[in-house]
Amino acid sequence: MPERLHVRKTYKLYVGGAFPRSESGRTYLVDGDNAALASRKDARDAVVAARKAQPKWAAATAYNRGQVVYRIAEMVEARRAEFKSLGVPGKEVDAAVDRLVWYAGWSDKIAQVIGNANPVAGPYFNLTAPEPTGVVGVVAPASLLGLVSVVAPAIVTGNTVVVLTAAPQVAITLAEVLATSDVPGGVVNVLTGHAAETAPWLASHDDVNGLDLTGIEDAELATELERAAAGTLKRVRRPGVTDFTADPGLAPMTAFLETKTVWHPKGF
């Protein structure tokens, strides 16, 4: 009997609910595994997928979005062994699952906390409610907890995201979790490769509404991206060095929310 050949896995992109290779055909080696190397056109396609998914995801009830994010937590839990085999410590998987559950809970509570019934001098109800910003480009940190900590707050409020990451194994394994967690295709899109190559295209893209630079370590690049994002008045989040084990607070969610205020006559 010849020895059985080991079937190795290629880590491909995650765009629109499918796992395509890069349109450029490029791959690169990461810790001995083949991964797709995303190009600017993959970023373009991912934005199209994210834009297409956004209205329906935003229109889903907060309760439903919370359930979906909770489902992600369940599925990460089920893949614990696989994450461990990629070198993610058990404690970090715990923290990632807890973080997902925490954000899932915020889904139908954030509006009560940051929304308001405003007192106004006139016969009106004046109500403020948060609404999702739209499509958010995210440069993600390499760790599982970091990745979850930037993706979950953006999507739980109704945004869709295009994630750039330099850690294909963990990110694409999480994408496989998302693909089996009732997350509609296109809500999260994952591109693996070099942020320096693809992030500028997201930053200047007219159809991207927000940019999260948490995963960018090169300060000069981050500044350049902020400048490019200013061309279309994107919301930009650049928290700098972050301790992901600490309580994240509401800032990661509120960074990509718009405030809608409605005046409604009363007293007829």
Binding site: R44, V47, W201, S204, H205, D206, D207, G231, T232
Partner: peptide, 9 residues
Amino acid sequence: TGHYAGPDY
């Protein structure tokens, strides 16, 4: 312009 355009414009 050298950057991707969006339908909003």
